[in-house]
Design a protein around this nucleic acid. Structure first.
Length: 210
DNA sequence: AAGAAGATTCGCT
DNA sequence: GCGAATCTTCTTA
């Protein structure tokens, strides 16, 4: 019988990922993070979601990356060593969460684009003003909104022992898909988006998710 | 100094 | 499908 390791009704204890467990290269980390668990501990309780879609923003060569033209006030946390949060604000409305992916001083990150809600669902539904599970964290702006993230979380170390925002081991995707990145116009041809194929919690148009 | 574009989402046509 | 919402950054359109 199929018994998912993570579900709404049965949850194992979450084990924090250590920095040493994170691949030290951006594309490898983007793939690695699929199926891993994202946790936010708030005073009012825990929010848990399983990552199902990521995008890599490469160091040095990637014109689509916020870090392409060097550090600024907005993007400086992209230059922290791997395992830190880079949270940026865009379109005057939305925040997006990234995990930094390289060494100190190298600007690169993995954008978390979508996640499957597992715990803290009522709070996510309130924040997102919708009850539909597949709309809570499908898309980077929605994901950050569901977790209540903003610029105050920019630069947090996700691997610090008691960080309020952290990563845990999870279950790898049964099938992994890849495509070009969404909403990107520079370096648009690069295949740097990764997702769990067949997941209802993934963003993107049908032709990208085949 | 001012304008355009941006790793987006929502609501209306 | 398209425009609005609405802030930061980069360019001079």
């Amino acid at each position: 019988m199929h018994r998912p390791k993570f579900s709404l009704t049965s949850r194992p204890r979450l084990r924090r990922l250590k920095r040493a467990e994170l691949p030290a290269e951006t594309v490898a980390l983007a793939r690695f993070l699929l199926g891993k668990i994202l946790v936010r501990d708030e005073p009012r309780g825990r929010i848990v979601a399983r990552i199902v879609e990521t995008e890599a923003y490469l160091p040095e060569v990637d014109a689509a990356s916020h870090a392409y033209r060097g550090p600024t006030k907005r993007n400086r946390s992209m230059f922290l060593r791997r395992g830190h949060a880079y949270v940026y604000f865009i379109y005057g409305t939305w925040h997006c969460l990234n995990v930094t992916s390289e060494g100190e001083g190298t600007g690169a990150a993995v954008l978390l684009r979508a996640a499957e809600p597992l715990e803290g669902i009522a709070r996510m539904q309130r924040r997102r003003k919708t009850a539909k599970l597949s709309d809570l964290a499908r898309g980077p702006g929605r994901l950050a909104a569901a977790l209540g993230l903003d610029r105050r979380h920019d630069g947090l170390d996700l691997c610090a022992p008691r960080s309020e925002l952290w990563l845990a081991t999870g279950t790898p995707p049964p099938a992994l898909g890849e495509s070009i990145r969404i909403g990107v116009s520079s370096d648009a041809h690069r295949v740097l988006r990764f997702f769990e194929r067949g997941s209802a919690f993934v963003s993107g148009a049908r032709h990208l998710n085949a």
